[in-house]
Design a protein around this nucleic acid. Structure first.
Length: 429
RNA sequence: GUGGGUGUGGCUCAAUUGGCAGAGCACUUGACUGUGGCUCAAGAUGUUGUGGGUUCAAGUCCCAUCACCCACCCCA
């Protein structure tokens, strides 16, 4: 029985895995320097956590969660996103706020897979918990912007909006619903449902007739309270001050229920209709929703697979070409055991080295060595062991000479870290 | 949930109006018993996604089904 991977999941082969490590290292450095601490939360949580935070009006909760019962009858779900877990962890562990946290964790959503979208995917995110100031939003956006710039994200642009707070949003949604009701006949069936559940989401609709109706919809701008207006103005001012280009888009809402005030999306023109690379915003009420004290917070998260897709494109390291710095070629049974000892000795000295144990004549072994991209080989035969002098052959030039183990340890090139990464044409997909 | 596309050796793809399932790459072995890359020779690899139907005959035509890819919705 040959098995296949489950729909929407992927095997991340060495080439891509290496690229991801490189990315994670970069992110780690950047976040650490900005005072963000790493956090890891469980892969599954109580279903209710997401229901209460991500929201009953979100598509994620309505139809995309992996929900299951464990043997104790607990109602659980694989995490579809991390923010609720992070906030839950902050509250549950009474972490001292303010605190800056970041994570790189897998997420699970049961939607239909396509390019750059998988049922299991990795998100890297950052959260500032306990700071209500617009500067926290600015800091975060700047952090993301620098990160994506450094990654070489192509066609990147940024959309920004505010969706008000609990003071001013109700007044606005009332007006919006009023308007939508008047123009109900022009709306698609989905929007009619959204109108009742989460009216702001109608702005997400791509149906042309709906967009036509929405063209004349009241703008939230007009209804913002003074505090929200100030907050938004300051965020915008900050971004301008630090030369971060953005489009102000009063149609940008977000798919999740917990957002308030600032919402932001990083997009790439390379991604087509599902162009969102990174999403985030402020969620000042989430802590209270989860039974904690009033705790303002703001954060963002991006999909690693998607980010890699728009930074490196289809190009990824070709791991089949990753070289072997030194390969030992034992000849004969006795030489195999000897080579293993030698292998460990050389490794302890910091040399990157492997052994070809498979049987065969020297010519066959050399052929294998070549196929494995060995840069040098060391021939370990009975004669060499007896004389304690081995033949070191440069596979590129074909030059070879006799060396003792002491001489081998003194060759500086062998101590250089292995260069596993060779750029190639291997496919991400 | 909706729409489109593709399924043939490990990989990339051929196969005429329906007529013996093929090539290139990769792989194995040998020429070469301790010196690779080049060359030459030989070899292995398939339920043509699956099930049914039409036919003397189906990779090819028809029906069904599955898988994967792409797009929509939504999201990262």
């Amino acid at each position: 029985m040959r098995f296949k991977r489950v729909k929407g999941t992927r095997d991340i082969l060495p080439g891509e895995a290496l690229a991801r490590r490189e990315l994670e290292q970069m992110v780690y450095d950047k976040f650490s320097r900005a005072g963000f601490l790493p956090i890891l939360t469980p892969t599954f949580e109580a279903y209710e956590l997401y229901q209460r935070s991500t929201g009953q009006a979100s598509d994620i909760v309505i139809k995309e969660m992996y929900r299951f019962a464990d043997m104790g009858g607990r109602d659980l779900a694989l995490r579809p996103e991390a923010t609720p877990s992070v906030m839950r962890a902050v509250l549950e562990n009474y972490l001292k706020i303010p605190i800056r946290l970041w994570y790189a964790m897998t997420m699970f959503r049961q939607d239909k897979p396509q390019k750059g979208r998988y049922r299991e995917h990795t998100q890297i995110g950052a959260e500032i918990v306990g700071e209500a100031e617009p500067e926290a939003d600015i800091e975060l956006v700047k952090l993301g912007y620098d990160l994506f710039t450094e990654m070489g994200i192509k066609g990147m642009y940024l959309e920004l909006n505010t969706i008000g707070c609990r003071e001013c949003r109700p007044g606005y949604t009332e007006k919006l619903v009023e308007f939508l009701k008047e123009h109900q006949e022009g709306l698609c069936s989905d929007c009619k449902v959204r109108m009742k559940r989460n009216p702001l989401r109608v702005f997400d609709c791509k149906v042309k007739s709906c967009q036509a109706v929405l063209k004349n919809a009241p703008s939230q701008r007009v209804y913002l309270c003074q505090d929200c207006r100030n907050h938004f103005d300051q965020v915008k001012k900050g971004l301008e001050q630090f030369s971060i280009p953005f489009n102000e888009n009063d149609r940008l809402v977000r798919g999740l229920d917990y957002y308030s005030r600032t919402v932001v999306e990083f997009k790439s023109t390379l991604l087509g209709a599902q162009d969102t690379l990174c999403g985030g915003g402020r969620y000042d009420y989430l802590a209270e929703e989860l039974g904690g004290p009033s705790t303002p917070a703001t954060g963002f998260a991006f999909g690693v697979e998607r980010a890699l897709l728009v930074s490196k494109g289809e190009e990824v390291f070709d791991f089949t070409k990753s070289p072997i710095s030194l390969l030992l070629l034992p000849l004969g049974d006795e030489a195999r055991g000897y080579s293993l000892q030698l292998l460990f000795k050389l490794r302890e000295a910091g040399i990157s080295v492997q052994v070809e144990f498979r049987p065969g004549r020297l010519s066959r072994k050399l052929k294998h060595a070549d196929a494995r991209n060995a840069e040098r080989v060391l021939i370990v035969g009975e004669d060499e062991i007896a004389k304690a002098r081995f033949i070191l052959r440069d596979m590129k030039t074909g030059e070879q000479r006799q060396v003792t183990i002491e001489e081998l340890l003194g060759i500086p090139e062998l101590k250089e870290p292995p260069s596993l990464l060779t750029s190639g044409e291997d496919q991400i997909t």
